[in-house]
Write a protein that binds this DNA or RNA. Structure first.
Length: 420
RNA sequence: GUGGGCGUAGCUCAGCUGGUAGAGCUCCUGGUUGUGGUCCAGGCGGUCGGGGGUUCGAGUCCCCUCGCUCACCCCA
């Protein structure tokens, strides 16, 4: 590969045969699962007004601060390749007046997303997500439903080493108050903290819980927890979600340190991870966002959703990818005994007739000799080969190694009837 | 943005203390003047990621750079 060869942009991937089939399999399983639960598919644009993500995802998030693919179109509008799916689906919900529909409005989506990050295992600049969003109800049963769907999706796809963690963030007010309390706690113990934790006290104090440093961990074991600062109503909501999951025998852990990175979450948050993955172990996650629709200009509407990464589902899945079977039922070869490719012309007509008759057929397209054409047909796995030589037509049974002269009609009938 | 590892044929890789690039697989052709699988023979295919330096001589040593990859940050 020479230096001037153009490659796929960093962090992007060509999905060849088996990989493309694997993606399609995930999409099909997800589509069936969501349909069975009454979710309607939505396809929103790949790019949106930049403002949607700034307002929806949150100005202070990593996504908005440094990960967006933002560009201006011909008339100077600022557009952004979608970095996540919730804000666009919310925009569509508002734009199409879906709050007038009977609640809850349940939607699912699938497609590529874009974030400008350094790629690593399970993380790409263009990645695929499947997700679901449900609007119009604050009932804990809806929380439990979304969590159950994410778990089912992982099960459907044979994802190994799965752990479900849940938590509640409460309202944004109680979270803000808690964050201040935690900052004060961290400052009081500043000398015992690892330098990188100390540097993040203002920006992201909650990350201190993840520090691997032993002294920091000892401090954090005594730190106040957000779960203990929940309002009575939020605590009751969280308890109801836990009870529903328990009754449904969905295994989960309560993780008081689970804090999803996007600003819009309220109350229930959850994440499904897999031990089969590398550093990026999250397979999917989501949470409730009861204020987002309002923030985006819609009527006050409670809502909850989740997204799962296709690449990560696949990495953690035990199912082996297999390419789609492309073996033709009929391969059409021909001799070269007549001038101006007359045999090829008849072969081409036969190919068209075969396709019209519903037979998966391929024709020799590289001018191979009959010997090489048969070798090629064999490699493709074609059970039958039609051989045109002069005015003669023969049908060869590749498995039996026998062939006989026949008419076009007989040939098509033999293959249509003799299929597995 | 930062750090580690790795860049030799389409793929998987070998290449010794520096001596002027190989194998297997794939693909194409012939052996079989019109017939597949096995076998045999031949062929296509590399600015050894790129640039500079040291040297009589660099795939090999040094520097820079680009790319891939894993990890940090953060997330799907």
């Amino acid at each position: 590969m020479s230096a001037t060869t153009i490659r796929a942009p960093r962090g992007t991937l060509d999905l060849l045969g088996p990989a493309a089939a694997a993606h399609e399999r995930v999409r099909a399983r997800a589509a069936a699962l969501f349909a069975s639960a009454g979710y309607e598919q939505v396809e929103t644009p790949i790019f949106e007004a930049t403002e949607l993500f700034v307002r929806g995802v949150g100005e202070a998030t990593d996504i908005v601060e440094k990960e967006m693919y933002t560009f201006e179109d011909g008339s100077g509008r600022s557009l952004t390749l979608r970095p996540e799916g919730t804000a666009p689906v919310c925009r569509a919900y508002i734009e199409h007046g879906m709050h007038k529909r009977p609640a809850p409005v349940k939607l699912w989506y699938w497609g590529p997303f874009f974030r400008y990050e350094r790629a690593q295992s399970g993380r790409y600049r263009q990645f695929f997500q499947v997700g679901a969003e449900a609007f119009g109800s604050a009932d804990p049963a809806l929380d439990a439903e979304l969590i159950a769907l994410l778990v089912s999706l992982a099960q459907e796809l044979d994802v190994r080493g799965v752990t479900l963690r849940i938590a509640s963030l409460g309202t944004s007010e109680s979270r803000a108050a808690y964050r201040e309390e935690l900052r004060a706690f961290l400052r009081a113990h500043e000398t015992e903290l690892a330098p990188e934790v100390r540097a993040r006290i203002d920006a992201n104090p909650l990350r201190a819980f993840d520090a691997k440093d032993a002294r920091t961990a000892a401090v954090m074991a005594r730190a106040p927890l957000l779960l203990d600062r929940l309002s009575a109503a939020d605590a009751e909501h969280f308890a109801a979600v836990r009870e529903l999951l328990g009754e449904a025998h969905i295994a989960f852990e309560i993780d008081p340190r689970l804090v999803r990175g996007l600003d819009y979450y309220t109350r229930t948050v959850f994440e499904l991870s897999s031990s089969e993955l590398g550093a990026q172990s999250g397979v999917g996650g989501g949470g409730r966002y009861d204020r987002l629709i309002e923030q985006l200009g819609g009527p006050p509407t409670p809502a909850i959703g989740f997204a799962a990464g296709i690449e990560r589902l696949l990495l953690a899945s035990s199912a082996q990818p297999a390419a789609a079977a492309l073996a033709p039922a009929l391969y059409i070869a021909f001799g070269a005994g007549e001038p101006q490719g007359a045999e090829r012309t008849r072969a081409f007509a036969l190919w068209q007739e075969a396709l019209a008759a519903g037979i998966a057929a391929q024709i020799e397209l590289c001018g191979r000799s009959l010997k090489r054409a048969l070798a090629h047909a064999d490699r493709l796995g074609a059970p039958y080969v039609a051989i045109l030589t002069g005015q003669q037509l023969a049908l060869r049974d590749m498995r039996a190694g026998e062939q006989r002269q026949c008419s076009v009609r007989e040939l098509l009938a033999a293959i249509s009837g003799g299929e597995r």
